Lab assay of single mutants.
Amino acid sequence: MEVRTIKVFTTVDNINLHTQVVDMSMTYGQQFGPTYLDGADVTKIKPHNSHEGKTFYVLPNDDTLRVEAFEYYHTTDPSFLGRYMSALNHTKKWKYPQVNGLTSIKWADNNCYLATALLTLQQIELKFNPPALQDAYYRARAGEAANFCALILAYCNKTVGELGDVRETMSYLFQHANLDSCKRVLNVVCKTCGQQQTTLKGVEAVMYMGTLSYEQFKKGVQIPCTCGKQATKYLVQQESPFVMMSAPPAQYELKHGTFTCASEYTGNYQCGHYKHITSKETLYCIDGALLTKSSEYKGPITDVFYKENSYTTTIK
Rank of each mutant, 00 (worst) to 15 (best):
D41L: 11
V243R: 02
Y214F: 09
H74N: 07
L200E: 08
A146L: 03
V189D: 13
K93Y: 11
A40L: 14
K316N: 15
E281Q: 06
G267L: 12
R4T: 13
N268T: 14
T282N: 08
G143H: 03
V188I: 13
G202A: 03
K44N: 15
Q195T: 15
D38K: 07
V21T: 12
P60M: 06
K95G: 09
Q270V: 15
Q123V: 06
H176N: 06
T314P: 03
Q270R: 07
S240F: 00
P60L: 04
V166D: 00
A150C: 03
E239D: 09
N178D: 13
D62T: 12
K46V: 14
A289F: 05
T312L: 13
P241D: 11
E168G: 15
Q197Y: 04
V22D: 03
M26D: 14
F259V: 03
K307T: 15
A250K: 12
G272D: 04
P249G: 08
A177M: 08
Y84T: 01
K44S: 12
D287P: 01
K46W: 15
E2T: 11
E204I: 01
T91C: 08
M245F: 15
K201S: 12
H276K: 00
V8K: 05
T211C: 14
H51R: 04
S79N: 15
T266G: 05
A146D: 06
N157D: 06
K316A: 15
T120C: 15
N129W: 12
G29I: 02
A136R: 02
T27W: 08
K54C: 14
M85W: 08
V3A: 12
R167V: 06
Y96F: 14
M26C: 14
S50G: 12
L235A: 01
Y113D: 05
S50W: 12
T198Q: 13
Y297L: 07
Q196A: 10
F80R: 05
D38F: 08
M24R: 12
T226L: 11
Q238T: 01
F242Q: 02
T91N: 03
Q122V: 03
N110Q: 09
G33A: 02
R139Y: 10
A146K: 11
A142G: 13
L283D: 00
E2R: 10
T103Y: 08
T76K: 10
G272I: 00
S104Q: 01
A262F: 00
I301N: 01
Y28A: 04
T10K: 10
D23E: 11
A115F: 07
T232I: 13
